[in-house]
Structures are given as structure tokens and as C-alpha cells.
Amino acid sequence: MKEFAVFWGCTIPARFPFIEKSVRVVLERMGLPWTECDGFTCCPEKSLINNIDHGLWVLTGARNIAIVDEQGLDLVSPCTGCISNLATIKGELHVDHRKKEEVNSMLKEVGRRFTGSAGLNHLVPFFHDKVGAFRIKGATKRDFRGMRFAIHYGCHMMRPYHALKNDDPLEPKKFDALIGWLGGESVNYMTKLTCCGQGLDRVDQHPTALQMARVKLRELNSLGVDAMVLCCPSCFLQFDNNQFLMEKDGESFGIPVLYFTDLLGLAMGCSPEELGLGQHRISVDGFLEKWERLNAARDTEKRLEEELKEEGAFI
């Protein structure tokens, strides 16, 4: 496997260091060839930067990509926004040589060069494609049989397709496959691919953002899933923090929100403390209790089976 750098972005280190912890723990335990780079800036964020200055948006993204290009690394991000922005910028420069030259003439003055040789991917499709079922199943000690998950893909994990090319943009499958490899059930639901709506919180429209969060949370509440699982800090903000704010106002949904690496880490035998699960605003205790209960029941079953086998029972 080619060595890759992790692009943390701004939101994870600033607002959710426990997500960074969860990702680090999993990458480390898996023994993957990962590294970090000096000198990254904001990816940059689309709705705030691209709407004001497209040229600067492209230039800043090209500079970030140039850092991994130079070192011959690939780039993987646990943030959907970052990877989508970087891939879109890379795609734009690949089809516009004049623009690419112009960007490189500016980057040259700070000693950098964009080639676009680095592969860019989001953590979830990366785990699906590059780490793969064999290695993932080999690394896990426990599974999630009997647990029902609502996957929230996060729009920018696989959109726009022309830039990311990592899954079907309108009917993605890879996150579902990963949950299946971990033994969990991915529940199909009507609003599964609907945007979280957190973007509205960035343009002073908090009540509308909550309205969007409600759409999904209400449906999941009625379906009775054990947890929502996602891999994007903005979506996490929307469903964990904003769900908590609504809960404080008396509107309760009770949907624990897990990061993809939280789930993988638990299956690999990491403790909830190690993964920072206590820092989620919506308590994950109920989820963990059910999981322990199911595991304990299965252990008893297994033990009984073995005892009976020893006694010569035909099973």
C-alpha cells in the first residue's frame, strides 16, 4: 500500500479532537503506512471561500495538494468537505492547462509545484478499496451482529463524481459494505442520502439548519435504529451537537452518532475511552450497553455449545 498523509482539515482539530483521536487510534492499530505533513492550511472551505474568490480557492487547494505531490504521498481525509474541495480543485486544474500554469507560476514563488500526481480519497472509500474486507475482518475481534445502523454518507464523500470517482454518487454502496463487514445491519431509510443541512449553520440560518436535522432524526427515531454512523465533521456537528441543542429544548430523538472509526475501533477492541466516545454530546451509553448485552449472550451460547460438544452432543 502506498504511504499516505492524513488531511485533518480545520473542523476536526478545532472542534472535535476526539474524532482525530479515534482516527489515529484505528490507523495506528491497523498498522497502515500513514503520516502527517507540515504546512497544510484550510482545504479551503467551499461555501465561505469559493463564493467570494474562486481564484484564491483554487490556488490554496493547489498548494495543499502540492505538499503531498512533492513527497510522493497519497492523501486521505476523514472530512468529506476537505476531500471534495481538494478533488474538485485538482480536477479543474487537470482540464485547464492555462489555469494550471498560472497557478504554478504563483506557487513557484513560494517554492512549490502542483502536479496532481497524488491520489486523493476520503477515509471510508479508502478503507473499502485499499484496506479491504480481508484486512478489516482480520483486525476485528468482535462484531456488530444484531445491531441496526443508519448510515449517513455525507454528500461530499462521493460528490461531485467527476472529481472523486470513488462510489456511485446517487446510490453509494461502499459505506454499507463496510458496515456489513463489521457484522452490522445497514438500515435502508427514505432520507438516507439527503444532505444533513449543516451548511445553513454557516450562513446565519440556524433555525433552518435545525429544521433539516429534524427531517432525518425524526425518521430514524420512528425506525428505531441503534445508532447513526457517519464520517464527516460537519454532519457530526449537525446530528450530535444540534440534536443535543434540540434535546435541551425538550425535543428528544435519542439517536447516538458514531464516527466510522468509532465503530471500527470498537470492533478492533479499543475501549470507548480510547475513542473519546464520552465526549459525544448525545450519550452512546445505551448503544454500548446493548452491544455488550448481545456479546454476552453470544458468549454464553458459545460456551454452552462447547460444553455440549465436549459431552458428545450432536450439534
Binding site: 482539530p13 478545532a14 484550510c42 472551505e45 471561500i49 467570494i52 454557516r202 450562513v203 446565519d204
Partner: peptide, 21 residues
């Protein structure tokens, strides 16, 4: 929206939209 301007201002001052906690 005022928030867009705040995000932009922070970006051109620091190159980021938030500092590590």
C-alpha cells in the same frame, strides 16, 4: 451573511477556519 464575512476574514488572516483546541 455576517458569518460568511467572519469566516473569510479568519481565512485570509490565518489560512484556516479554526485553530486546534
Amino acid at each position: 451573511p455576517a458569518q460568511v464575512k467572519r469566516g473569510w476574514d479568519m481565512f485570509i488572516k490565518t489560512g484556516r477556519l479554526g485553530e486546534p483546541a
